[in-house]
């Protein structure tokens, strides 16, 4: 095993994020089992469904690159979905809801960032706790019953297409490209890389460590806010359960995409393919009749196996 890992070809192959392999394998499975599903229209609909996840992942990969994590996205999505669908702001315009959603996301992310970056509290515990505070709050407001409908204009935009490709998918690709550029071109991107590699060294080379962590969390909150808007538009109704499983899926997709605590080898596109892998996985699982519990097990196993993969690799180096 050790000898195989020392082989340069093996090493190079190990550097490729597992998401690409998983994606290729799932595509092959689908191509053999259900070739008729592999057309642009059907695939477009499947991919469109996971756009909220894809956007949430953009935030997740940011915080994971600075060795943090954000599990509060579910709460943020639920809260925004509630404010839009419950009718507490009757007749408000679309722009108002968008601003409100982004503000909620930014505020929650900023709070997470302060706790993790300045108070240095365990990120898992902070963001889990923030998540359940928000979930409990929404359930309290709605007494556990689904709120009303989402204004129609959300669904109208969600259902548009540019050529054969649904608009939300294009939006996701564009957001990913923007983040990728942002990270590779700005000083902030360098800070993120430095903090992720070695917090102490970053501190002693003058990187504003706490500010960088606060900023990544704030941005993650912003992405959660955007994900909430897309998710709300996609289901078109209010719900007291929407988005609750997204944070853990986002962690899974990010790890699968080669971004593990501190290491950013997968960039933005690794996790992007991690999300696509999950889209295909759900299609494959549905076609083979695997239901909800099976999906939970698969999520857990994927995170575990990917983490073990990195654990073995880091030891062999």
């Amino acid at each position: 095993m050790a000898a195989a890992l020392a082989n340069p070809v093996m090493r190079r192959l190990l550097r490729v994020p597992p998401a690409y392999y998983v994606f290729a394998v799932l595509l092959a499975v689908l191509w053999v089992a259900r070739p008729n599903m592999l057309n642009l229209n059907i695939m477009g609909i499947f991919v469109r469904q996971i756009v909220p996840l894809g956007i949430l992942v953009l935030g997740q990969l940011l915080v994971m690159r600075v060795r943090s994590i954000d599990l509060s996205g579910g709460g943020v999505i639920l809260l925004i979905n509630y404010t839009i669908s419950s009718g507490v702001f009757p007749g408000a315009s679309m722009a108002f809801f968008i601003v409100l959603a982004l503000a909620i996301g930014l505020a929650v992310g900023f709070f997470n960032g302060l706790m993790v970056g300045v108070r240095r509290v365990s990120a898992v515990i902070v963001t889990l706790a923030v998540g359940i505070v928000l979930v409990g709050f929404v359930q309290y407001l709605s007494s556990g019953k689904p709120p009303g409908d989402v204004p129609g204009m959300f669904a109208d935009i969600y259902n548009t297409k540019l050529g054969p490709v649904p608009t939300p998918v294009i939006f996701w690709v564009a957001a990913s490209a923007a983040l990728s550029l942002f990270l590779s071109r700005t000083v902030f991107g360098r800070f993120v890389t430095s903090v992720g590699e070695n917090v102490q060294a970053a501190h002693f080379s003058g990187v504003p460590v706490a500010r960088t962590v606060v900023l990544t969390h704030t941005l993650a909150g912003l992405f959660a806010g955007i994900a909430a808007l897309v998710q709300t538009a996609s289901i078109a109704v209010g719900s007291v359960r929407v988005g609750l499983d997204l944070p853990i899926l986002a962690v899974a997709a990010t790890i699968l995409g080669g971004v593990v605590f501190g290491r950013g080898e997968g960039g933005v596109w690794g996790p992007f393919f991690g999300v696509l892998s999950f889209a295909l996985l759900f299609v494959v699982m549905t076609t083979f009749g695997v239901d909800e519990p099976g999906k939970l097990i698969a999520q857990g196993l994927i995170i575990l196996l990917a983490a073990i993969f990195y654990g073995i690799r880091s030891r062999s180096n």
């Binding site: 000083v187 080379s205 990187v207 504003p208 290491r263």
Partner: peptide, 24 residues
């Protein structure tokens, strides 16, 4: 930053003097 390049290690303090949003 042992896992990062010589270039990144040397430039780290140079970047630190600039604003986050500046182009690196």
């Amino acid at each position: 930053f042992l896992g990062l390049s010589v270039a990144h290690n040397i430039a780290a303090a140079l970047h630190s003097k600039r604003s986050e949003l500046a182009l690196a």
